[in-house]
Amino acid sequence: MPTEVALLESRALRDEQLGRVDVLDKVKSLALLPDGIHVRTEDVARYFEVSTEVIKKVTFRHRAEMEESGLTVLRGSELRVFQRDMQSLWGGGQESYPQAATQLRLYTRRTVLNVAMLLRDSDVARCVRTYLLDAEGELRTQYASLDRRVTRIESCLSGVGSALQELGPVLLRMSERLDSLDRRVEVTHQVIGAMSLRLTDVQQDVVRMDARLNCFGRQLKELRRRGGRR
């Protein structure tokens, strides 16, 4: 787990933590501009309870890193447009929104978190770093627990695989016996079909014999009747 010193010294570690802007609100409330996105240098200084000069020095020493995390400097027409938008969002008159003379530095929440990971002489910044490191430790613990669970599952699946390998020959023999039984059942069906056809033929023979017997009976009766007359 990274330490506070490592966080202060390593940009790579700081980059890994830039998405954890929720930590800022766990320490104290950050007052955003009316657009709900940006804060000014004085707002950042107020949050960390230091002077604006301290914030400016940190920003100057790590300018490239700050710009990648969201620092913007407005001048000229961009500044005038932004001020006009802020005045509209502020809902007041010309004096409602503080004016900047020639330029305005704007920080996003990511940039403020970046400052917290660089600012050494601020109790608030130290609290933010503590929250970050605690969250990192908790996340690592959760990952370790998940890894152990996955390992146990893999172990169980390995046992299942071994059992299936042992059952393979048994299942193969059962499959062969079922195939043999299917063939025997099919032959039985064929024999029964042949017997059914033969029984049909026998039934027809019986019907014909019954008809001939009836005819013979009638002839016999006729002969007896004729003999009686004589």
Rank of each mutant, 00 (worst) to 15 (best):
S180E: 13
T111M: 05
G161N: 09
L118W: 10
T200F: 03
T102C: 13
R152Y: 05
C127E: 07
V112A: 08
R120K: 15
E186Y: 12
G159I: 04
S155Q: 12
A100T: 00
E176S: 06
M174S: 06
L139A: 12
S196D: 11
L167P: 00
A101W: 10
R129L: 05
Q190V: 11
D123C: 01
Q142C: 07
L181H: 14
L181Y: 15
I192T: 06
M195F: 09
M195C: 09
A101D: 15
V128I: 15
L213F: 13
T188I: 10
A100F: 00
Q99K: 03
Y131K: 03
I153W: 08
D182G: 12
L197M: 05
P169V: 12
Q165L: 15
M209R: 01
E138K: 01
Q190K: 14
D134T: 12
L113P: 12
R212H: 11
L119S: 12
S175V: 06
R149G: 11
D210R: 14
G217Q: 10
V128L: 09
A101Y: 10
E176L: 02
A116L: 00
L172A: 11
V128M: 08
D182A: 07
T130V: 08
R183S: 03
V160G: 01
I153V: 13
S122H: 11
M117F: 11
N114H: 09
S155I: 08
E136R: 11
V150S: 04
V207P: 02
P169N: 04
S180V: 06
Y131H: 13
G137F: 14
R148T: 14
E138L: 08
G159R: 14
A125Y: 02
L132C: 04
Y143F: 15
H189M: 12
T102K: 13
V207N: 00
L157M: 08
L199E: 05
E186V: 15
L172R: 02
Q219C: 00
R218Y: 04
S180N: 10
L146W: 12
L106M: 02
D210I: 06
I192N: 09
P169Y: 05
E136G: 00
V185Q: 00
V191H: 09
R177F: 05
V128A: 04
L199I: 09
T141I: 01
V128G: 03
R183T: 07
V206Q: 15
Y131P: 05
A211W: 09
L146I: 08
G193F: 06
C156H: 10
G217A: 15
Q219T: 04
L104C: 03
A194E: 14
